[in-house]
Design a binder for these strands. Structure first.
Lengths: 131, 131
DNA sequence: ACCTTGTTGAGAACGATTCCCGAAATCAGG
DNA sequence: CCTGATTTCGGGAATCGTTCTCAACAAGGT
């Protein structure tokens, strides 16, 4: 049975309060900074639970850290992520779903899942870079 | 200046000899098994060099390991990967490129890069599973 | 309130990757 | 073919993110 602890709630809220991808460590640090005595292991557990239940998106970045983000839209979707500031835009793309399913089927693959994320430099960061 | 050592060549060849994604550790192990006295650190260095030069694809899997694969097609492409046996199919998908570029542009993002990989269970593995 | 059982948290354990640095190898020039 | 400058190697130690361990604790049902 899944129990309802204040720790899980705290993680859920802390994640929801941000609108970009955060690593487990970052989240833990900011919760601690906010006065919560929560443990690191618990944050990890809560985050992977959230990801498993579909309430959060997990994303393994290039630097070896897993990043999480509260899921706004309930359904399946993809992300447009600023590689500089981490700002994230959720994207619906039915075409991609169909394409992925089609490609998988064409090669005899079953139960297709796909990872589709677009990274870029958002307008704001591009200006800073250029400056 | 980049020097041409037999170690780098060995890594390039060992990677080219396989047609699926391998982790640095796996590659190092198989090279050692093949009699090469190459060091683990060197394999890591060579692989990230190859990835940087575009001669290899890097892919960070869900289990925390980076996997590499020799790039067959020179251009940009995506992969269809069996989550069970690791067999990989390269996919060209111009539609995706256009879509990604369009999405990025629509949100003011510059210099778009995208990660598009499809995972599934290939026909062979699906049969084994079902058996 | 009580008992059962999932959860917590501190630190240890772990595995992948990177760093360190003396030794060896490579390339360019003489 | 030597020589020197400089890169690369390699083994082990260090680092870093993540997971595990386990005793103490707390949530829920009754």
């Amino acid at each position: 049975m899944k129990r309802n602890t204040w720790q899980r709630t705290a993680v859920r809220e802390a994640l929801g309060a941000r609108d970009d991808f955060v690593s487990a460590q970052q989240l833990h640090a900011s919760m601690k900074a906010g006065g919560s005595p929560i443990g690191l292991a618990t944050v990890y557990r809560a985050l992977s639970d959230l990801a498993e239940e579909g309430d959060a998106d997990a994303l393994r970045a290039g630097d070896g850290e897993s990043r999480y983000r509260a899921c706004v839209s309930a359904g399946h979707h993809h992300h447009l992520i600023c590689r500089s500031c981490g700002r994230t835009v959720e994207i619906q793309a039915d075409d991609i779903e169909h394409w992925a399913a089609g490609v998988a089927a064409a090669h005899g693959f079953r139960d297709p899942q796909h990872v589709v994320d677009v990274f870029g430099t958002c307008a704001a960061c591009a200006e800073v870079d250029g400056a």
